[in-house]
Amino acid sequence: MLRVESVVKSFGGFKAVDGANLHVNAGEIVAVIGPNGAGKTTLFHLLTGHLSPDSGRILFKGKEIGGLSPHVLCRRGITRSFQVVNIFPRLSVFENVQIAVLSRERKTFRIFSPVAGMAEEEVHRILRSVGLFDQRDVESDLLSHGDKKVLEIAVALSGNPELLILDEPTAGMAPEETERCIRLIRKLSGESGLTILFCEHDIALVFEIANRIMVMVRGATVVQGSGEEVRRNSEVQSAYLGESGGC
């Protein structure tokens, strides 16, 4: 479904992504791991149009998508959450999801129909599935950090993506929130067969839920394979797993 080939992105001489390769099949959960500054977020930005690659190819469903803008890629079926919570802070939980649903339904140019209550059923269904239904009328800025991250996943889901990209979905979460988030990711993958690409510093978590793992160090892909293959890779052990085991 997604294929990244020798992609390079530099910021004024510094190569943040330098020869990344990645392969994601439909229905898989794939994780990207690597130390701080390895280029994971930059890679994700390249996949969602927030940055364009200097060279290399990014193919989604067989088509080159490198350099397309974020809103176009969302419509093509890639949605995401960000490493730092990125929601509409002044809108309620309900409205955050609603606006994403309306965008997907191409209703954002309706200027006279009242927005209140539009797409209510679907928004409620999404909020129930992520466990935020009871907080639907809360201004989203007032949510706990963990709930904000979950809300952002809900917003990303509202676009009915084929590929969901999550940049450190559990970062900063309390243990029980992390647990809940993992269950959610599993459920999304299991129930709706959603393809998920994420990155995470919690290595145990990664080995627990990812079908396959890609290891990135200094912008380059060191290895991509099953948990077992990654564990066995000596380069990974020296460069990453051995020294820290978790960052």
Binding site: C74, I87, F88, V115, A156
Partner: peptide, 26 residues
Amino acid sequence: RIVRSPFGKVIQGIRDNPVRAAAIGV
């Protein structure tokens, strides 16, 4: 009416967070 329409909500969303707005396909 306009500021209470889907369009009105979206422009307020753009005001508060253009990056998120683009990321949901706007």
